[in-house]
């Protein structure tokens, strides 16, 4: 039996310097191991500089092909990345708005914002991309896990019902943590994209889910009127069902983005944003609203704010809220 190669590469001199035993010389040497000294271990306990090297451009380790290709990818994508963060809203229902002059009726959806606050930001240096994490509403601290409570405590905000991360183009779009975003973040006449989950339909057949034609009602048909029919050819096409074949299954409750909805009304006092047309999902579903990707940047024309309410205002609000009885918001979670 030939001698086994040593298991710990780092404890030995470089492979090239070592005399190769005759019995090993004929074996193919794994190329990936040849020039490097591989370090094995748990990532989370490695020194910080090694952990961050992947994205940090100041770090010499960042010259890796991964970092460079990520740079290029972000550069390519920056064309469609919004300049500002979005907000989370709740869909409250639909109505219409009339123009008193022309009499034109515009169907619209009413969305309500609730305590949108910046909970965290992601940076190019630390995370590889820029994004703003926004929280919506309020959640009882009893219904949060300890890690979640820690996350909110670090941001000095109350526990949130929902968190969502909005990707933004660059570091300039990052907002201070704790900042409050209201409806005046958007302006009337502006275009936005809304993203929400569609209504769930449960398990549906092929006719409803994919618009199949079904079978005739008569002409000798019996008991198959809404079936999907054949799932594919026989031996000629491999006697198998091709991947992605449309079939019966669960329909709806999928994320759906509607682009370029015009903002018709903004009511800061009541937290209302009214957008043109319909938004996917049932009433009371959560909707992510962000500046329209496919419209030219309208900040200068409309005077869109790039900074939210001052943090002092947020603090004042919190103080006022703390004075009011809000159940057990003062709960201090302990073991």
């Amino acid at each position: 039996m030939p001698p086994r190669p040593p298991l710990t590469w780092s404890s030995l001199p470089a492979l090239a310097l070592r005399p190769v035993p005759a019995s090993l010389a004929l074996r193919p040497v794994p190329t990936s191991l040849a020039p490097h000294t591989q370090t094995r271990g748990i990532r989370s306990i490695l020194p910080v500089d090694l952990r961050l090297s992947r994205w940090d451009q100041d770090n010499p380790h960042a010259k890796s092909p991964t970092a460079l290709s990520t740079d290029k990818a972000l550069e390519r994508k920056s064309y469609t990345l919004p300049h500002r963060t979005g907000v989370i809203a709740r869909k409250k229902g639909m109505t219409a708005i009339y123009d008193p002059e022309t009499g034109v009726r515009t169907p619209c959806t009413v969305l309500q914002l609730d305590r949108n606050q910046v909970v965290a930001v992601k940076t190019r240096k630390k995370h590889g991309y820029c994004a703003v994490q926004v929280g919506f509403g309020w959640r009882k601290p009893q219904n949060c896990t300890r890690p979640e409570l820690g996350h909110y405590a670090k941001a000095r905000v109350a526990p949130k019902e929902e968190l969502h991360e909005f990707k933004v183009r660059n570091e300039e779009a990052l907002l201070p943590v704790g900042a409050l975003l209201g409806p005046s973040w958007f302006k009337e006449g502006q275009f936005v994209d809304t993203k929400s989950n569609t209504k769930g339909h449960g398990f549906t057949g092929g006719m409803k889910r994919h618009g199949f034609s079904g079978q005739p009602a008569s002409h000798g048909n019996s008991l198959t009127h809404r079936a999907m029919g054949s799932a594919g050819g026989s031996q000629g096409s491999g006697s198998r069902v091709h991947p992605g074949k449309k079939m019966a299954g669960r329909m709806g409750n999928e994320s759906h983005t509607i682009q370029n909805l015009k903002v018709l009304k903004v009511d800061e006092e009541n937290g209302i944003i009214v957008v043109n047309g319909c938004v996917s999902g049932p009433k009371n579903c959560l909707v992510n609203i962000q500046d329209a990707k496919k419209k030219p940047w309208q900040a200068t024309d409309l005077g869109l704010p790039t900074r939210p309410l001052s943090l002092e205002t947020v603090v004042e609000e919190a103080v006022v809220a703390a004075a009011e009885p809000v159940g057990d918001a003062e709960v201090v979670a302990a073991a």
Binding site: D114, R115, R146, G150, Y152, A153, A158, E317, A318, V326
Partner: peptide, 10 residues
């Protein structure tokens, strides 16, 4: 862990 009070509910 300190739990901060929420702002006013909309």
């Amino acid at each position: 862990i300190y739990v901060h009070p929420p702002p006013r509910s909309m």
